[in-house]
């Protein structure tokens, strides 16, 4: 069994959830919403955290994890409760701009099929666009950093095209591309290409020239210097560009899905916005944030493997 202090940390989320449950059920609603789903959700969460708290008394690892996250979780629960009170229960914030958490949950419940389909469609677009953007960006960045002549043409292009917002491209894209799908992929790829190119170029240019001098004395030709010295040397900076590209891709999703897609998070968000159903918009944004966070974690894992050589040298 754990100490009293530890116990309070372990049980804090459960207590917060139970307070939420009581207030949610007992306080009357001032706005229109289906409370039932939320009740089920909170009850379920209470059960989960109770199980976790109990078993933490027996499993050390679970105990550590729970007590570590306990403060954050409890604060989030209480903030959500406060938000529910000022929206659903007291109606202090104007609808439809500030929907209650109960209403947002409703969006998940009623539209789960559409949302799932949208996630799939968006993922397809994002993955294609990201890969293409990277496959174009890294070579461009390498060439840009290596060959002065390349920069003569590329620099103006990068500087002018890069900052153009995705929505401005829409009229051109639809005309220029054979299908609107390829146009949408292009938009995402473009948003990824820009930071990846800039960062790759920066990474190459900032490499200590001693590396290249040594390589030349070892018999390295230009190709070897570019692919086996510049590229791995610039890898840490390239990864920064890739993280930025990930964020750009998600941000461009809304514009990219304006072109006649059948489903997608951006499409769903546009729809919700047009209908002023902001609770649906926030629901979709929640999913988008989760997806982006998941992708970022995945990218971190990839980076950690490839850049394992950095482990002793930089703040990890």
């Amino acid at each position: 069994m754990q100490t009293l202090k530890k116990q309070s940390a372990l049980w804090a989320p459960v207590v917060a959830l139970m307070i939420t449950l009581v207030i949610h059920i007992e306080m009357p609603n001032k706005q229109l919403a289906n409370s039932g789903y939320y009740t089920m959700l909170i009850s379920f969460l209470t059960f989960i955290f109770a199980v976790w708290a109990i078993s933490s008394n027996f499993k050390q690892k679970w105990c550590e994890k729970l007590s570590y996250y306990s403060l954050f979780i409890t604060v989030v629960i209480l903030l959500t409760l406060i938000y529910e009170i000022i929206t659903l229960k007291e109606g202090l914030l104007p609808l439809p701009f500030f929907p209650s958490p109960v209403k947002i949950l409703e969006a998940y419940v009623t539209d789960w099929a559409v949302l799932l389909k949208s996630v799939a469609y968006s993922m397809r677009l994002l993955i294609l666009g990201y890969i293409i953007g990277m496959m174009l960006g890294i070579p461009s960045g390498l060439m840009l950093g290596w060959y002065k002549k390349f920069g003569y043409w590329m620099n103006p292009i990068v500087r002018i095209i890069g900052p153009i917002p995705a929505t401005a491209w829409i009229p051109v894209i639809l005309v220029a591309f054979p299908t609107s799908f390829s146009g949408s992929v292009f938009l995402i790829a473009l948003s990824v290409w820009f930071p990846v190119t800039v960062m790759t170029c920066s990474g190459v240019c900032n490499l200590n020239k001693s590396y290249f001098e040594i390589a030349r004395t070892l018999g390295a030709d230009e190709r070897y210097q570019l692919l086996k010295i510049a590229l791995p040397g610039a890898a840490p900076t390239i990864f920064v560009g890739m993280f930025m590209g990930l964020g750009s891709a998600y941000a461009t999703l809304i514009a990219a899905e304006m072109l006649g897609v059948k489903a997608g998070l951006g499409w769903y968000i546009n729809w919700a916005q047009g209908w002023a159903e902001y609770y649906k918009l926030y629901a979709a944004l929640g999913i988008s944030a989760l997806m982006c966070s998941g992708c970022t974690s995945l990218l971190f894992k990839v980076r950690d493997r490839i850049l394992v050589w950095q482990k002793g040298t930089v703040k990890w």
């Binding site: 200590n208 001693s210 590396y211 040594i214 004395t217 791995p232 050589w309």
Partner: peptide, 20 residues
């Protein structure tokens, strides 16, 4: 120009950090 028949070493070892 440089050639592999003339090996060189700097004061700073300048080892490639990404290679073992």
């Amino acid at each position: 120009g440089p050639h592999f028949t003339r090996g060189f070493a700097f004061q700073n070892p300048t080892l490639f950090p990404w290679k073992d």
